[in-house]
Simulated scan of single mutants.
Amino acid sequence: MAFWQKHWTTAAPIVAWLTYLASFSGVVPTLVLAATLIASVLAAVHHAELVAHRVGEPFGTFLLAVAVTVIELGLIVTLMSAGGESATTLARDTVFAAVMIILNGLVGVCILIGALRHKEQVFQQVGVSASLATICALTVLTLVLPNFTLSEAGPVYSTSQLAFVAVVSFLLYATFVGVQTVRHRDYFLPDKAVVADQEIHAAPPSNARTAASGMLLVLCLGAVVLLAKTLAPAIEGAVSAAGAPRAIVGVIIAALVLLPEGVAALRAALANRLQTSLNLGLGSALATIGLTIPAVAALSLLMGLPIALGLDTKSVVLLLLTLIVSTLTLGTGRTTVLQGAVHLVIFAVYLFTTIVP
């Protein structure tokens, strides 16, 4: 048992690949596939965190956000390829779900539990404001504007519009990454005066261990994509059998891949490192839009798959409310219990209206 607890992150990708190969025989239960998929996601984030600790902040949170986004992108692309025209809104639903889960659910919980333990927490407003400004631009350009263009009837872009928005989204995200990691790196660093997590002071892993984790991370990501493709019919079948809206599939995908990162953000908030929590959450939201939308747009253009990005009216209202409240909440550099509660209420409304539209 002790051996398994120590080496499960190494065993997880191996077991995942063996499970995937065994699924060709049709004897692997759906629950086993799901459990193996979750274990692979957790192992992938573990290895990403280990590599991140080696390269330091804010590269660490950036690397973790990209790793999680690659997992999410792999899930979306495989499900879109398998679903064809029936998966037209999958990318939109998943990206919107990720934004709502992060800006309301994750940020709300981190602020709330951090405030309950530490009363008031502080962070660098300049870095967070830069992140929010980029998120506002990306979400409106990709999820709202398609409803108001004239070349094609909403909620879709024409071919040229889709290509243009995909390029500018990627360039905007790349610019943010350059600011976060090079030009203004200090804007995103935690305040050393409030760092309380002893793990931040742990010795970085050796080069050999970092390289091993890098290879295991690749194995985990590949296993997640393949297992997700295997599980896709079961997920969509369960949603249809329950009579739930198809948008629930996007919520499930987003929640699945964001869960491990959410745990890391919560641990940082409890350790009075809200800056790290916000870097993780907002960085993941940016990567989700800035990488996923261009990738699915390229898939749509190359394979001729239809893709609808524009949100319905209810979702647009909730998105704009979320962006306004997030700007006000994170506009002072300090947070309290009330701000966390407001975000969680919006998140609860989003979940309820997704199930009961």
Results as ranks from 00 to 15, higher is better:
A2V: 06
T9R: 14
V15M: 07
L21G: 12
L21W: 15
A22Q: 14
A22H: 14
S23V: 09
S23K: 04
V27N: 12
V28H: 12
T30R: 03
L33K: 09
A35N: 11
A39D: 09
A48F: 08
R54I: 04
G56M: 14
V66C: 04
E72Y: 00
L73I: 10
T78S: 12
L79C: 05
G83V: 07
R92S: 07
R92N: 05
A97Y: 00
A97P: 06
I101T: 12
L112V: 05
V122P: 00
S131W: 06
I135C: 05
L138A: 10
L141K: 04
T142V: 11
T149M: 14
A153G: 08
A163T: 04
V165Q: 00
A174E: 10
V182Q: 05
V195K: 10
P205T: 12
S213Y: 08
M215K: 07
M215V: 15
L217W: 03
L221K: 01
V224I: 15
P233K: 01
A234G: 13
I235H: 03
A241C: 05
I248L: 14
I248F: 09
A254E: 08
L266V: 12
L270W: 06
Q275V: 12
S277A: 08
G281C: 11
G283K: 03
S284Y: 01
I289D: 06
G290N: 05
L291Q: 04
I293E: 10
I293Q: 06
P294E: 12
A295H: 09
V296W: 02
A297Y: 00
A298P: 01
L305E: 04
P306L: 05
L309K: 04
S315Y: 02
V317I: 15
I324L: 11
H343Q: 13
F347I: 10
V349Y: 03
T353F: 07
